[in-house]
């Protein structure tokens, strides 16, 4: 897949990092401000899609990227499930029990498991959407070859 013109590439260089940081901010502050794992994950995927569209990528790289994103997606949902299972072993013996100390509401490190769930759901959503996008791009490249 080919990249775009110099102007688009330069603008993307300046913007993509900021979008990525904004996604991470939305994920980490999910229990304090509007947002959370789902919103932040989609924003992270958006920054990757912007980079791929602007700079292009050759076929072998695309396949490698897709393999990586599939791996991250499956690992993230596995960790999410394991975190939920810890509630069954410790604490109140309930699936999805939030047994870590809650801390002071309103601080960044508080609310027990919720920030961890947010992080892993964020990775899962970002990797899923990136995988779908890469699969579509790879299909198109295979047709062109």
């Amino acid at each position: 897949m080919e990249g775009m013109t110099v102007i688009v590439k330069k603008t993307t260089q300046l913007i993509a990092g900021i979008i990525f940081l904004y996604g991470i901010y939305i994920i980490l502050h999910g229990h304090l401000t509007p947002g959370g794992g789902f919103a932040g994950g989609v924003i992270l995927a958006g920054s990757f899609i912007l980079l791929i569209l602007a700079f292009g990528s050759d076929f072998l790289n695309l396949i490698r990227e897709e393999r990586g994103s599939t791996l991250y997606e499956n690992l993230a949902i596995l960790v999410f499930l394991l975190l939920a299972l810890t509630g069954l072993l410790a604490g109140g013996k309930i699936f999805f029990a939030n047994w870590l100390p809650h801390g002071t509401p309103g601080e960044l490190v508080s609310a027990g498991f919720l920030p961890l769930y947010n992080i892993f759901i964020g990775i899962e959503v970002a990797a899923s959407i990136l995988t779908i996008f890469l699969a579509l791009v790879i299909f198109k490249e295979e047709i062109l070859k």
Binding site: G30, L32, G36, G103, P105, G106, G112, L114, N118
Partner: peptide
């Protein structure tokens, strides 16, 4: 109960 200020996150994950 959840320790989360954002009620939507509390409902979604807890």
């Amino acid at each position: 109960k959840t320790g989360s200020i954002n009620l939507v996150t509390g409902v979604v994950f807890d």
